[in-house]
Every structure is written in structure tokens, then in C-alpha cells.
Amino acid sequence: MSDPIQEEVDREIKENKILIYGKGTKAQPKCGFTAETMQFFDKYGYEYELLDVLENPAKREVLTKMTNWPTLPKVFIGGTFYGDTDVLDPMEAKGEVEPLIKKAFEAA
């Protein structure tokens, strides 16, 4: 019996080129790191989605298991997991982020 939450997550990851699982909403982020992650992507001007999992422990558990990453926010670009801004900031410093985003949007 496949896991409905896993299916939901798989669909969300496929449908959103830049996807942030975090705490709160775009209008009302409830965690500094979630807000920081949105500001990170605001710089690039590409559309991104923020999905609030603050009150959804079951989904957070699925996400934690599949990514082997215990914290939120969790970022996916083009269907691939990239941790959070602690990972993306050093990648950005090496110019690795923009090509990733462009590739994700070109692949559509």
C-alpha cells in the first residue's frame, strides 16, 4: 500500500520548480529561516512555492526520512533536494545556484 503522504510530496516536488517546505505562509512566515529562504529566492525573481508543514507532523516525518535532513525549511529545485540556505549560500558564492534554477525552468 503506497503512502498517500509520500505521493502528495512526490507530486508537490514535481509540480514546483522551486519548492520550500517551511513554517508559515508566504504572507506570514512563522520562522526566521523560512523567511530567509524566501528572501534568498526573491533575489532571483523566479516563481517559488512555500508549503506550510508547521502543523503537519506526519508529513514532516515523511520529508525528514526521504531527505535524511532533520530540519525545516527544506528546499527542492527542479525536483532535487538542496537542504536550506546554509547549503545554498555557499553554493551561491560559487555561482552554482543560478544555473540550477535556469535548468529547472528550461526543462519545463
Binding site: N68, W69, P70, T71, G83, D86, V87, P90, M91
Partner: peptide, 17 residues
């Protein structure tokens, strides 16, 4: 790679987290 380094730290701090 960066992500694996961070995973190592999260694993080390698993209990207090």
C-alpha cells in the same frame, strides 16, 4: 559535499535537537 557535512553535524546533535 556541503550537505553531507551538515548531515554529520545534525547526526552528532541528534539527541539535543
Amino acid at each position: 559535499p556541503i550537505m553531507d557535512r551538515h548531515r554529520m553535524i545534525y547526526q552528532a546533535l541528534d539527541v539535543p535537537m
